[in-house]
Design a binder for these strands. Structure first.
Lengths: 206, 206
DNA sequence: TAGATTTTGTACCGATTGGCATATAATGTC
DNA sequence: GACATTATATGCCAATCGGTACAAAATCTA
């Protein structure tokens, strides 16, 4: 019951596995198969951790899945942050974001990936309030990231002052949703890049 | 084995159910729970048709699901067609499409719906080539519908002649993908309408 | 009325599901 | 070394899974 992930070295028998590594493996499996399509047996096999240990560490399957969603969002955020820091302009920032996402979403080892959040959480959202709420929070987070980038661009005089930052952010975030679905459907990388280009072209630069 | 859905009145014992009504019920259940989340028992209960009869009529669960996807697309197409015929301008056409989709996607009886195709097929696409291909075809169909509307607008001189119809269609289709995910996450109708407005505002009218 | 044909409903199949009880093993503390 | 504490692995649970065998029922043909 007690959560004591870090702090003082624990008293009893030590963990045999690294919690964050296992969470990554869990995340990847949910990414491929979704919540309903992934069994605890499969999770156990993929992580090398027995079911009871998984259960003791992460809770039930839905809690594991929620942890996977947040972990995935964290991964994306971590990939995008340095890109934004290096970007010299609004245009470069937006292109950088889309580039990272496309690299993440597109086929890898013959698996059409897309985005774990948009592609699998949406399915379960109608049946689980917890998942629906988490999905809503994560989507809001994506909107907010775009709004932040656009706002910074406006402050640097790169954006048409009349542009509605919130509305534009919604459209750009919407394009990422589309990138995810299309990648999941097996779209070619070039097609995704064209969509990203079209999205960037829609921004009313100053 | 033999498919003889229509034509001469059949020879043996007559069907007790209407095939298209049952397909609608199947579609609705998959819409809520996705493929993996829907059991044959649940389908049987929702349709009032015993499992063996479902199997004999539609094939296995995946084939039922694929039939549901196509049925859903057909529904949308049927809802949009009259709107496009009545629309007097490109702007009206686009607004009409988004209006129909939002009405379809938004909460209904406390169930966040979104789009069956984008919200549930994406999950299964990575595990089934048949579903992935069908999803690709349906997404292409959506792109094509938007391209058609934009092309018609261009021919009427309503669209900036320099506009890239295909690219613009991808962005608009992408907004529908986004509407689906957001609706599934429980977004308010007003938020979806704002996104649709922002999308329409992005079109470079002549 | 006697087949031929097709659908229906019951009942069952082995496999898998999510979850947990329990005993054992490995550590720190005293 | 004895104990408390924590994590492990084995094995089980009732329930459900997708799918089907089979016999009864309902129709058309002749």
């Amino acid at each position: 019951m007690a959560k004591r992930s870090k702090s003082t070295r624990s008293r009893g028998r030590p963990r045999k596995f690294d919690e964050s590594e296992v969470l990554d493996a869990i995340t990847d499996l949910f990414w491929q198969r979704g919540l309903s399509g992934t069994s605890l047996d499969a999770l156990s096999a993929a992580t090398g951790v027995a079911r009871p240990s998984l259960y003791a560490t992460f809770g039930d399957k839905e809690q594991m899945y929620l942890a996977g969603l947040r972990n995935f969002f964290g991964r994306i955020d971590a990939s995008i942050s340095p890109v934004l820091e290096e970007a010299a302009s609004l245009d470069e920032s937006l292109r950088g974001i889309f580039e990272v996402l496309i690299e993440l979403y597109v086929d890898h080892e013959d698996i059409a990936r897309g985005c774990l959040i948009m592609s699998t959480a949406a399915t379960e959202a109608s049946g689980s309030e917890r998942i629906r709420e988490e999905l809503g929070r994560l989507l809001d987070g994506i909107d907010a990231r775009f709004a932040q980038v656009l706002q910074r661009g406006r402050e640097h005089g790169e954006l048409d002052p009349d542009a509605d930052v919130e509305a534009l952010a919604s459209v750009l975030a919407g394009v990422t949703h589309s990138l995810s679905v299309r990648a999941r459907a097996g779209a070619e990388r070039s097609q995704l890049e064209q969509l990203a280009d079209a999205a960037v072209a829609v921004v009313p630069y100053a």
